[in-house]
Simulated scan of single mutants.
Amino acid sequence: MKKLRTFLIWTVIALIIENGVFLYFEKVYLVQGSSIKAEKVEKRKASDMKDVSIPSEAKDVKMSHDGSYISYLEDGALKIGDRTKGTVKTVKVADYMSINYTKWVTDGNFLIIAEKTKDAKKPYIGFYKYDAVRDDKTELTDLDLHKDIINLSSSKDNIQDMAFATSSNVMYFKLGKTSDRCDIYKINVMSQMEKVKTNLQGIDTIEVDPVNANLIYEQSGMVKINTGSKQTRIKNLSEGNVLGHSDSSVFIAKGKSDSISEIVYGDVEKPTSSWQRISLDNKTSTKNIFLTSGGRVFVNNSNKTLTDLTSKKNIKYEGTLLDVNDRGILCEVDGQSKVVELE
């Protein structure tokens, strides 16, 4: 009885510590440097917001989850278009750093930014969270306030992809190196940066399993899962392209990247034979497929329409298609942003 009581006490203590870590990450780490103010927020339609300028030379144009903000690079500077006001501002970057890669989180107006030092002798990449609402940038650190950085072996190394799910509080970063090789780093639930894969070859898209927070990556046409101690291929899937994830499923386009006719999605712990399937009427490239965080799949057609693969409805747009999410379709028309509202 005494041993059982001792075991139960230590079990409770362990649960308290574990929950405390997750609570810290969610309530402190992700909002550090920001003041909290309770207020009633009226949800605005993306199409009712104001247009912002998008220069013809803009690169890497992306839209925040609710369509309120647009990010892009102009001559190396990171610009944020605020569609609630119709204004554009420049994110401040230290003189000795440059923007390397950016990605919006899927359920908030936060941009994760990778910045690389300009010093070729001691190159490294640091990571920041930019709060678009407050125009506030905070450097990512672990629980001891040590900076989450990646020291580079070459100044030519760059972040090529990011993957994260806010439900798991885990982030993965693909660091591209020479000779088509890469390393993959992870910020774990303790907010610590660690290398999980070294010198991999033929790596394309990386993703995160939203259920178990394991790394998923595409390597030479094969989709693999890394659980830390081992890596395995997804069962019953000979060739595939990772599209992304929703709250509980991973989406994979089957076949070669330029000839996709079917998309499957489900729990990576289960064989793909039990997954849900979406058939395409015509074969297309993965470049024409857009997956939203809510699990909606769209195909871009040559006649300036997007097809919703669930409802089979076609949605018209103007200009150049830039991005798609659950709130709308972002286009550039005559140097201005245009967002087509999604139902």
Rank of each mutant, 00 (worst) to 15 (best):
G76F: 08
D180R: 12
I125W: 05
S34V: 13
D209F: 12
Y265F: 15
T284H: 05
A94S: 14
V105K: 09
K313S: 07
M49E: 08
S179V: 05
K195R: 15
M1A: 12
Q201V: 14
A38P: 04
T272C: 04
E269T: 15
V340N: 04
K50N: 12
M63Y: 10
K186N: 04
T87N: 12
V250G: 01
R181V: 11
A14D: 02
I252Y: 08
D60I: 09
A132E: 02
L143M: 15
I13A: 14
L342C: 02
K116L: 03
S98Y: 04
S168A: 11
L140F: 12
T178H: 05
G202L: 09
N226T: 10
F7N: 04
M190W: 12
L73S: 03
R134G: 01
G221Q: 07
R296V: 08
M97E: 12
S71D: 11
M97A: 04
V52S: 05
L200M: 13
T87E: 14
K122M: 06
G20P: 01
K156F: 09
I225A: 06
T106N: 05
S274H: 01
G76H: 06
G244P: 00
I16L: 14
D107G: 02
N212R: 14
G295P: 10
N214D: 13
V297Y: 09
A163R: 04
M222A: 10
G33V: 13
A14V: 15
E218V: 07
K43V: 14
E194Q: 15
F298D: 01
F22C: 00
V41C: 02
S279D: 07
M193N: 06
D209E: 08
E262G: 03
V340L: 05
T307W: 12
K62M: 07
M97F: 12
N303R: 05
S68F: 06
I234N: 06
D258M: 03
A165P: 00
Y72I: 06
K92A: 12
D267S: 01
